[in-house]
Design a protein around this nucleic acid. Structure first.
Lengths: 228, 228
DNA sequence: GTAATTAGTATCGCTTTGTTACTAAAGTCA
DNA sequence: TGACTTTAGTAACAAAGCGATACTAATTAC
């Protein structure tokens, strides 16, 4: 077994001052999945990938490196999730953790030594990492209006039904097909490709790609209905 | 001069592993203001309030205490802003900082030894604290749809014109009076009081208070227009 | 008194949105 | 082959939302 960062704490050396954790999310068959280290024994506790925080390296840079190292590729999107340190246990035994949230397109294979796990049916996670996971899921939902997260969780070419299903997965509710497409068209965010995909039964679907175009900034009224 | 947390670094002792910083925002005459330590000399650099992070205390708890200590009262709203550590200088000389953002109602007096400063016309701030301030202003704008931030930046009783001006200040654009009030009424967020306020010229305005009522969850369509 | 100023509302027309219903193109199965 | 099912995609209508203009109301300034 390779010498993983875990061993810093496991070996009994003084725990690092802080850890850097990665919540990497993706989708699989209408389920939100998170990337965890494959447990060495079937009953071992699961853990999000993490490493000791190197004070000499900037956070964004260190998080990007951690992601590329563990994923074998750059994530489709990564952003700071925040600091976590409310006395909840963490595999590093550190008092403080800095977490980043990242996404991969659905269907990405799990890197060696890791696996995708349904966030709904997730085994025991250290309490602080559990808080990170819940914060990450909330962050995806709250930021998908501002950042093209749903598009990043799809392959480069996708059908509009896949896009709508991704939105439904992240929002946790059903959307209306005609309204969804009308709003999407009005936003000039996608462009059609020449390809069509036939997926078993039914009419083939046209493939689109994310290609946002400059459009008139139509600032809308204030939304009060999400408050409280 | 009292022994401020600053002296931890200034005295030449080993810098703390991390700092805990507070970006406390409020409003003054259509300007967003931030609370800074009053400089000892007129040309000294300004600094956001901060202290060395105690690893034994949870982050939310420590931030709440720091706020109450420095403000002399609990803030009207406080929330984690994130971790900052990208090699930018910080008064603590620490490699890592955890920041919280808080708001006080407009018109709150600055505590002793501190002052409100217009965020637009702000003197030199340590680069990392400058990044926190910009992140805090962005966080207010992006989260005011989900959290009643504008209401927390007003006194308990306020006029609808004051509320609209607060929204305009945070959003950075003008809003339409009739539309604003129609949307507000439809959301059942405020209730009128018996009081009216006469503010110099013009017709007196009725005072309202924030009193959100249970309302039918009218989930709306997806917003694509803020993307990219 | 009249004018100016701010608060608050009514109404109109346009846009956005939800719904129902439709057409299109594929597979399934008798 | 042809009826049925399934999924993709669109049309059309009604209802709701929204922006603009214009109005009334209550106060101060003169």
């Amino acid at each position: 077994m390779r010498d993983r960062p875990h061993s810093v704490a496991r070996a009994g050396r003084p725990p690092a001052a802080a850890s850097l954790d990665l919540v990497c999310l993706s989708a699989e068959r209408h389920r939100l999945v998170v990337l965890v280290d494959a447990p060495s024994t079937p009953r071992a506790a699961l853990a999000l990938p993490w490493q000791a925080l190197d004070p000499a390296v900037g956070l964004d840079l260190a998080a990007g490196r951690l992601a590329r190292e563990r994923l074998g590729r750059a994530p489709a999107w990564i952003e700071s999730l925040g600091a976590f340190g409310d006395n909840r246990r963490h595999p590093s035994a550190s008092a403080l953790s800095v977490a980043y949230v990242a996404v991969l397109p659905m269907g990405s294979a799990a890197p060696a030594g890791m696996q995708w796990v349904d966030v709904q049916a997730l085994g025991p996670l250290a309490p602080r990492q559990d808080a990170m996971l819940r914060a990450a899921a909330t962050a995806l939902r709250e930021r998908m209006d501002l950042v093209p997260i749903a598009f990043r969780m799809l392959p480069a070419e996708f059908t509009l039904s896949e896009l709508q299903e991704m939105y439904e997965l992240l929002l946790g509710r059903r959307l209306h097909k005609a309204s969804f497409r009308r709003a999407l068209q009005g936003a000039y965010l996608v462009e059609p490709t020449e390809s069509w995909r036939s997926e078993g039964r039914g009419r083939p679907a046209q493939l689109f790609r994310y290609a946002p175009r400059r459009r008139r900034g139509t600032r809308r009224s204030v939304r009060f209905e999400l408050l409280q």
